[in-house]
């Protein structure tokens, strides 16, 4: 299997690299490691390969405004959406959307756990954090892409078809719930930064969905 290149000029390794960096960035963002300065860096450095999806354009325009935004307001907003301590306005858990009761650690979480295990991994905080937290899902994809790249480079000789696993994981998990989540982000975010990141993520996933088909 080969990915549809995001841009005709690049080769597969470049494609992997771009995807990898994008997923990595979003996972860092959700891990709480980004703030408005970093986000505006993101705006300047990475807009070139995020594609032309309308949501991405919208998100980048919004992100442009972030530069002057207050870091604390962003932080509070981020926590209201994803961290707590109150009821989460945009829970970052797959199960919160797919589980009918909105509970974590149910069938949905365990099915994500199973995926990780297929690739020989499990989260270090097994049983402490729900396995389907978006940070883990995004980082897991980074791992798959990295493994694929290493296989391409002949570094690793593994029987697992990482690209196929990525495609499946993307279709069966990420794509099923993240758009719902990012829509919650649109509705509830109070800062441009959070809103923009929601738009960008949704736009990126839409682009990627087309690329993977």
């Amino acid at each position: 299997m080969r990915l549809m290149p995001l841009d005709q000029k690049s080769n597969l390794l470049d494609d992997l690299e771009k995807r990898f960096q994008t997923y990595l960035f979003f996972s860092q963002y959700y891990a709480g490691k980004a703030d408005p300065p970093i986000l505006s860096w993101f705006y300047h450095e990475m807009d070139s390969f995020l594609g032309e999806h309308p949501l991405i354009i919208q998100g980048l325009d919004l992100l442009h405004e972030v530069q002057g935004e207050d870091s604390t307001a962003f932080r509070y907003d981020f926590n209201r959406l994803f961290v707590g301590p109150g009821k989460l306005l945009a829970p970052p858990y797959e199960s919160a959307y797919l589980n009918q009761d909105g509970l974590v650690m149910q069938e949905e979480t365990l099915s994500v756990r199973k995926y990780y295990r297929t690739a020989g991994l499990e989260i270090s905080a097994l049983g402490r954090e729900p396995d389907d937290h978006i940070v883990f899902q995004l980082e897991f994809i980074c791992y798959l892409l990295s493994q694929e790249a290493q296989a391409l480079n002949g570094v690793e000789d593994d029987h697992i078809n990482y690209l196929e696993l990525y495609r499946k994981f993307f279709a069966e998990h990420l794509m099923i719930w993240v758009p719902k989540h990012t829509r919650d982000v649109q509705v509830h975010s109070q800062t441009s930064a959070c809103k923009a990141m929601g738009l960008l993520l949704e736009g990126f996933l839409e682009t990627e969905k087309q690329a993977l088909n």
Binding site: Y116, L121, E122, I123, S124, V135, E139
Partner: peptide
Amino acid sequence: PVHFRHAQ
């Protein structure tokens, strides 16, 4: 990956 370990 920072949040993962090899599956036991």
